[in-house]
Each structure stands twice: as structure tokens, then as C-alpha cells.
Nucleic acid binder design. Structure first.
Length: 319
DNA sequence: AGATTAGGCCGCCATT
DNA sequence: ACAATGGCGGCCTAAT
């Protein structure tokens, strides 16, 4: 059997985690099945990640012979990609190559037009942005991953693992997929249509009746919110709500909310190039000035400093 | 930066 | 007697 050529397109200089996932999953153990390489626009060297040593840097011409193209998350600076990269992706797709994205990698595929009319997903914090810029795409914010046949997209990096395992199951069957899952210590299977937030909330033990209200709050982080609103949603008195909330989370409602807003802001700062004002409004902290104050208080870093810190090359992971 | 105002937090107590 | 509740008021925090 000829080997199936998997080409991972790196759009940032180094992205150990996202890039490492397909390398790990397709790259070892099954040398008879997959030949895995990386490439990048202009052939700029890419650090291997996750303890893998198979990364071979090539330019976009590598996409010409790919059977599967995987675009991992990228874009700490901007999600725009150049026209050569777009053309290479379009050509690969037209040739029949299977197109896969992980996390914000979906933004690259979106620019090529090959997602138009299809159901896709990306990281939940950026789903609205994707839908806004690419109105012809049907963005499914709650899926872990979406299989549209030739095109498969996945949410955050954890969902990228699920998608890669799913693809191996399609190609080589459940036995091989389960063996790979065991090797990388992943759950052998999570369904693509399962709600995406599950991976972000801690496991809820029994006796956590406000979990639904917290979830409801998380989905409305960009809107104004008062404790009265929360209490109304939970159908409790103000006093009762505060009391239960504190008991279940260890902090008061507003404090918890602020914490969540800052967490979302970190996500956006790391994974997008959105201006500070836009981030401020998306996380429900109103003006940029107010946002800065909050952000600095809980991270002791200004938003821009934080972003800079994370757009630098991250340290390589070992496995 | 300081003042203003709305809203939040929490101890306390009467009620259930 | 006990536990949970909900309202009140004083003090604190957030936001403009």
C-alpha cells in the first residue's frame, strides 16, 4: 500500500502544541500507513514539537503531493494569510486532498473559499469572529469537530486530538485508532457533535445546582450582567443566590464573573490580533480603560504585554 | 486624579 | 432545637 501523505502546514514559526498533535498522532507507530511532513510558506524552518523528530521543513510545494493537509492553530499576530498560501491550499483542495484544520487553523481555510456553504467549527472564543468575517460559512460553535467529507474542522487543541483520532479510525479502523489513542493517553473517542464547552468546565460533582447558571453566564460574557440577573436565572432571592454561589465556587458572584471575563480576554489576546478595545467589549468589560484596569489587577500585566509574551516562541514541550 | 452613584458583599436577625 | 431562607443596612467596590 502506498503511504498516505499527511502534510502539516505551519503558519507560525513555532506552535508546539497544535503542530505537535498531528505529528504525534499520524507520525509514529504506523510507518506503513502515513508519511508525515511539515511545511511552511517560504520553507521557513519550523521547530519540531512534542518530542517528535520528523519535522522536515519544506515550502508550499509540499502541498502539491499531499493526500491530507492539516492546518493547526496559528495567528497570534493576524489570521490573514498571503495569496500564495491561499492558492496552494485551493489547488490541494481541487486536486482532492483532504483538508483538516485545528483550532484557529480554520481561519486559514476560510480565506480560501473552500469552506463556503459548509458546516465548520473553530475555537469557541473565536466562532463569532469567524462567522462575522465569513458569512457564507456555517459556523457550528458547539461542536468538537465537524466532518464535511473532504473538509474536517475542529475546535480547540483538545478537539484536534479527537479529530485526528477520528480520521485514523476512518482510514485504518478502530483498532489502530484505539492503539494510537492509548499511546498518547487520549480518550479513544469523543463525538464531534458533543457540546464544546465540556472541555472547559471542571467536572461537576453532584450537588452543584448553580452549574447551569454559571454556564449561562459564560455564554453571555459580552453582555451586561448583574447579580440580580443571575439570581433571576437561578430562580433564587438575591441573598440566597449569593450564599449558594459562594458555597459552591468559593467566591462571590461578581468576583467570579470578573475572573471569567479576564480568562476569556487572555484567550482572545493569545489567539487573535483583535484590538484591545474590541477584546474589552467582547469580554463585557466595556471601555478599554476599564478593561486594562481589570486585566492588570488580576494578571499584573497590561493586555499588550500579555499578548507580546504569548506571541513569542513558546518553550518546546517534551512528552 | 477625585467625586459620584449604582451595585455588590456579608453579618445579623426574624421567619419558615 | 435546628437548618435554611430572605430582607435589611452598613460598608466596600466598580464604573464613569
Amino acid at each position: 500500500m502506498t503511504r498516505h501523505r499527511v502534510v502539516v502546514l505551519a503558519l507560525d514559526d513555532v506552535l508546539p502544541l497544535d503542530l505537535g498533535i498531528p505529528l504525534q498522532i499520524f507520525g509514529r507507530d504506523d510507518p506503513d500507513s502515513y508519511e508525515v511532513t511539515t511545511c511552511s510558506p517560504g520553507g521557513v524552518p519550523v521547530s519540531a514539537a512534542g518530542g517528535i523528530s520528523i519535522a522536515v521543513s519544506r515550502g508550499l510545494e509540499a502541498l502539491e503531493s499531499a493526500d491530507t493537509v492539516i492546518v493547526p492553530g496559528y495567528g497570534t499576530r493576524s489570521w490573514r494569510i498571503d495569496t500564495e498560501t491561499v492558492a496552494a491550499l485551493v489547488a490541494a483542495h481541487r486536486r482532492g486532498a483532504r483538508m483538516v484544520s485545528i483550532c484557529s487553523g480554520t481561519f486559514a481555510l476560510a480565506q480560501t473559499g473552500i469552506l463556503d456553504g459548509l458546516r465548520v467549527t473553530t475555537h469557541w472564543a473565536r466562532a463569532a469572529e469567524l462567522a462575522e468575517h465569513f458569512p457564507r460559512i456555517d459556523v457550528e460553535p458547539k461542536a468538537l469537530f465537524v466532518d464535511e467529507g473532504q473538509v474536517l474542522t475542529s475546535a480547540g487543541v483538545a478537539a484536534g486530538i479527537d479529530l485526528c483520532l477520528y480520521i485514523i479510525r476512518l482510514d485504518l479502523g478502530a483498532t489502530v485508532a484505539n492503539r494510537v489513542a492509548r499511546r498518547i493517553v487520549a480518550a479513544p473517542r469523543r463525538e464531534g457533535e458533543q457540546a464544546q464547552f465540556i472541555e472547559y468546565s471542571p467536572v461537576t460533582e453532584g450537588g452543584d445546582p448553580l452549574a447551569a447558571t454559571r454556564e449561562w453566564m459564560l455564554q453571555r460574557l459580552d453582555e451586561p450582567m448583574t447579580v440580580s440577573h443571575m439570581a433571576a436565572h437561578a430562580r433564587l432571592s438575591l441573598r440566597g443566590f449569593s450564599r449558594h454561589f459562594a458555597q459552591q465556587t468559593g467566591t462571590a458572584p461578581l468576583r467570579w464573573l470578573h475572573g471569567q471575563r479576564v480568562e476569556l480576554a487572555k484567550e482572545l489576546l493569545e489567539s487573535s490580533a483583535l484590538p484591545i478595545e474590541e477584546v474589552a467589549s467582547r469580554v463585557g468589560l466595556g471601555s478599554a480603560a476599564n478593561f486594562r484596569a481589570h486585566f492588570k489587577r488580576s494578571t499584573s500585566l497590561a493586555p499588550q504585554q500579555y499578548r507580546r509574551q504569548f506571541s513569542r516562541a513558546a518553550p518546546s514541550l517534551q512528552d
